[in-house]
Structures are given as C-alpha cells and as structure tokens.
Simulated assay, not measured.
Amino acid sequence: MTLVKLRLKTALSIMAVVSLVAACGLPRSGPTRNEIFSGSVQQEGDAFVVQVTDTVARATRTSSALGFSQSFVNAPIGGSDTIQPGDVLGLTIWENVEDGLLVNQGANAAALEELQVDGAGYIFVPYAGRILAAGNTPEAIRRIITNKLSEATPDPQVEVRRLAGDGATVSLVGAVGAQGVYPIERPTRTLGAMLAQAGGITLEPDVAQVVVIRGGQQGRIWFQDLYRNPNYDIALRGGDRILVEEDARSYVALGATGAQRRVPFESNDLTVIEALAQVGGLQSNTADPRGVFILRSEHEVISRRLTGRPDLQGHQRIIYLLDLTQPNGMFAASEFMIRDGDTLYVTEAPYVQWQKVIAALTGSLGSVGSVGDAASTLGN
C-alpha cells in the first residue's frame, strides 16, 4: 500500500470515527439553531419562528402598568376621628327649658353613656331615633342629633364623645418597616403617608408592589408609581388592608449564558439585553450570538398580527429569534421586552460541538496519533 493511499485511508477512518462519536450524542446545553428551526410551523412543526425587528418589538410590547380603580382614586379624604361599628359613644344633652325631654327637673344636662355603635353602624337616641354613627365624625353625629331633637325641644345643645374604640384603622403587612394596625389620623389619611408611618418599605423600589384591599375590592400599583402619579396616593378608609410584596414575575435562562436558572425581574419592564445582563451575559467561549431565542406562549391577537394568520385561535407557541451580529441586532434586543414566564435560550456556536468531538476522541484514545493507529487497525 502506497503512502498516499495509507494517508487517505487513515483520514477516512478518522472521519468515520469522528462521525461515530458525534452521532453518539455528546453533552450540550440544548438544541442547535437548525434543530429549533426544524420544529417550526414553516417546517411542519408546531411553533412559529419570528425574527425580531423594530416592528416586531413594537408589536409585542405590552404594558406592565398597574393602577387603582376610579372608586379608589375618587374617594375623598376621610376624617381622622371617623366612628366605626363597635365604638362606644357618650352623649351629653342640654335643653333650654325647665322641664325637658331628657333633662330631669333641677338638672341642666342629661348624660347618655355607653351607647355602643351596632354592627349596622347605628345608635339609638331617645326622641331622635336611630342615628347612623358609623362613617361619621362625632361632630357630624352631634349635628344630626341636634337637628332631630330640635323638632321636639327648643335649641338643644349636644356633645358627642368617643368613650371606647380605636376609630378608623388600617392594617399593614408584608415588606414594610413595621407591620401592624395603625389608626387613620390627620397626618396619615393617605396611602403614602401611612406607608411612611410604618417605616417605609424593605424592598428595592423597582420591584415593590402595593396592594390595597377594601371590602370586596382590590387595587394594586407599583410602589414607584405612588410618587410618580399623585392620583395613586389615595385616601384611606377604616378597615383597609395594605400589603407590600415583591414582584413575582420571572423568566428562565438556559443554554450558553452565564447562568441557567429561574430569574426574577429586577425592574418593572425588562428587555432582552437587561435579561442577559442579569445572568452574566453570553458565555464568550461557547455562545452563538446569532442564536438568541425567546420562547413564549403568545396572545392570540399578537400571534395573528405577527404571522398574518387570522385563523389562529388562542395562545400560540412563538419562538423569537435575535441575531446580535446584525447591524441593528443589539438595538432590537434592547427594545424587545421579556414577559413573565418567558424562556431565554442561547445556542452554542457550531464549532463548540466539534471541540467536544475532538476532546472526546483525544480523551479516550490518548492523542491524534492514537486515532491514526486505531484507524489503521480498523483498515487491516
């Protein structure tokens, strides 16, 4: 056998061994670009692959804004001494006659003590009837009783006092400086003031959300919006429950990134560039910057718009592709927004798999020369 034929046979044998090793399925971080494309609808798969452009970034942008309903925003400032069900009131009534309705002869005033506000919010006052006390201040109750008694006795004078009960209170829980029940007082009639009274929040402002529960209603805002939008500094009501909690949204990072894990959002809105930065960016020795993918279950309306398929029904599997090597690739990545539940996947560069094949061969056979010997042996 001539030297040329021997070298050719050796080379072919080496290629056969390399192909065999590659076919055995070497370890890798996930599918390749071609494998992802093979699962697309365009190739009879079940997911749409969409190249991210400025137009796509704008079409998929959704707001993460939160807010209070108009019933919360329009509620007026309440009194700091508003009476609540369960409070106990004391009344003193003066009548401008010698023989009054309530004042005994020889006395100048009548005292009605221990008038407890019932569950419906009412108290009973003789000759005035049932008076709605809950939701009113002592001054408002005084005027109501005075008007009622004026129909039966001339120029009555009434004093109303809260003898027991905390009045209007709210409860604060979650990530606040001091959890507890706080009275609504003159300096703390609004949400922002009450949070300050409780020691502020213990979370980063970018990821803090404030929830207000009032009866059967609930409102949620970003903490930062409380100070950006004065309308969100709502007036509080007795019985309000205030919860401060961290943004629960997250995405999953996989592939040739600095970390493979579930990643919480660090801001209200998060772009692909920011998401990559959170996990340490692309791995410089393995990542393929042409293969940055966002896997998402996309809304029906957006899916129809992107694919031009008005027949689509329900959420669709969309795979967004970003090629960071394109002239506008980095700009597109800085405008495309990550959403809750997304999977961020970066493919490995093609040569990485060849490196693994070489490493597998040299590791098992000792050296490239040993590969040649093995190939010669196979040829004999």
Rank of each mutant, 00 (worst) to 15 (best):
G177W: 15
Q43C: 00
N229F: 02
G30W: 02
T257I: 04
T286G: 06
P289K: 14
P264Y: 01
G280C: 04
S284N: 05
Q105Y: 00
V21K: 10
L321N: 14
V357F: 08
A332W: 14
A111Q: 06
T347C: 07
Q355I: 09
G379T: 10
L20G: 09
S80R: 01
R304E: 03
S334P: 05
V244E: 11
I14G: 11
S71T: 10
L378Q: 13
L243G: 00
F68I: 08
G119D: 14
R214I: 06
Q217V: 13
V160P: 11
R186F: 06
L8Y: 12
T325H: 15
A253Y: 01
L378D: 15
L149Q: 07
A193F: 13
G239R: 05
P31M: 06
G100H: 08
F293T: 06
T377K: 11
A175F: 12
Y345H: 00
L112H: 06
A134K: 01
M194A: 08
L12V: 14
D340E: 05
S64P: 02
R290K: 15
R58D: 14
V371C: 09
N328A: 04
G329L: 06
E114N: 14
S80F: 07
M330H: 10
V50H: 03
N147T: 03
A287Y: 15
S284P: 12
I221G: 00
S171C: 15
E114A: 13
D87V: 08
P310D: 10
V181N: 07
V4D: 11
Q278M: 06
V263P: 03
Q51R: 13
T32G: 07
K9W: 06
L282R: 03
R130I: 02
L378V: 15
F48E: 11
L203Y: 15
G121M: 03
G79M: 01
L203G: 11
V207S: 03
A109C: 04
V103L: 02
Q116S: 13
I201H: 07
G255W: 02
N328K: 03
E298M: 13
L112Y: 10
P154G: 04
R161C: 00
I294N: 10
I77N: 01
V103R: 01
G363I: 05
A360Y: 15
D247W: 01
R304V: 00
N147C: 00
G30S: 09
T190D: 10
S19F: 03
G177T: 14
N147A: 05
G180V: 12
E335A: 13
R130V: 04
P205T: 03
A111H: 10
A164W: 09
E274Y: 05
G280I: 04
D46L: 01
T2V: 06
Q316I: 10
G192N: 10
R33N: 11
I242F: 08
L6I: 09
S150K: 12
S63R: 00
L132G: 01
G135H: 05
T190S: 12
R237V: 08
L20P: 09
P31Y: 15
G372Y: 02
Y182W: 11
P310W: 12
L203E: 05
E44A: 13
G239A: 10
A208C: 08
R220D: 10
P27T: 01
A208Y: 15
T190E: 09
V212T: 10
